[in-house]
Amino acid sequence: MENKLVVSPSPHIHSGDTIEKNMYGVLVALIPAFLVALYVFRLDALIITALAVLFCVAFEYLIVKYIIKKTPTVLDGSAIITGVLLAFNVPSNLPVWILALGCLFAIGVVKLSFGGLGNNIFNPAIAGRIFLLISFPAQMTLWPAPDIAGAVDAVTSATVLGNLKSNPELLPSLQTMFFGTEAGSIGEMSALALLLGLGWLLWKKVITWHIPVSIMATVAIFTGIIYIFNPIPLYHPLIHLFSGGLMLGAVFMATDYVTSPMTKKGMLIYGVGIGFITVAIRLWGAYPEGVSFAILLMNAFTPLINNYTTPKRFGEVVKHG
């Protein structure tokens, strides 16, 4: 035998799981929402999403290669996800230069300045979206009316959550929200499509149920309790579940591996926290939507949660049976 034997510590086999598999699993899960977006916003959705992915991948490649001077690993899929998620969080008629700025902030500042994938504190897409929302509030909160009837679309309209506080009579039906033809950002149209994505992620074991379920349950229960005492649309739990970025946030943004807690207990605390902050901002805050702020805040708490929660250990409960 000419080849030298390889010697290494055990284990000698590997599951074959890779970062890429997980990342591309998330991308596959985003397909239903993307199809709905294509149906609703037609070419605009395609252009914005494609450009956001292009910008994110290009910025990551250029920054890693020429500023950090390492081998770029843009094909691990994380930059693509950031691009898609950022695109899904903006209106379909956002000017391209604003989108590019958001991508640069998300990749350059939020992700790579902390050391790249695995070391960032905040979810790049969320932070990018908030950066744009604060810097360009006008462009970020003007949504084109859905283009379903085929009518020439020039009107911009407020979102469900925007109307919730001011014009409750303009609310679309719950069915519309569930299947997704109300005004809003590109990817937050259809709760159904996002739930399909959640099903895929759970089936492929990319994520566990803890974070999305705890966020949704907290939002539903919190608003539900208020609704019992004051049954006006503003407090309707289903409206809160199906509107705005809640589903998108709960399924795809809050579950980002890097910025969410690692223990099951921690995931539940994190999810409940996001749920509470989201509802609080939506009901009593200045902004109509609070999901991204809630996730960003809880991202900041993640290291603390990790520090104070431990996994369920073997032998902790001695059951004599």
């Binding site: 290494s8 590997h14 970062i19 050391g115 695995g118 591996y257 690692m262 223990t263 996994p311 073997f314």
Partner: peptide, 28 residues
Amino acid sequence: PTLEAKRKAMKDCIRCAKCISVCPMGLN
């Protein structure tokens, strides 16, 4: 076989927590 003998290069931890969920002793 040689093709499966060597490990792949190590990457940064992405904190997916899969090691925690498979640890039979409940460690991190």
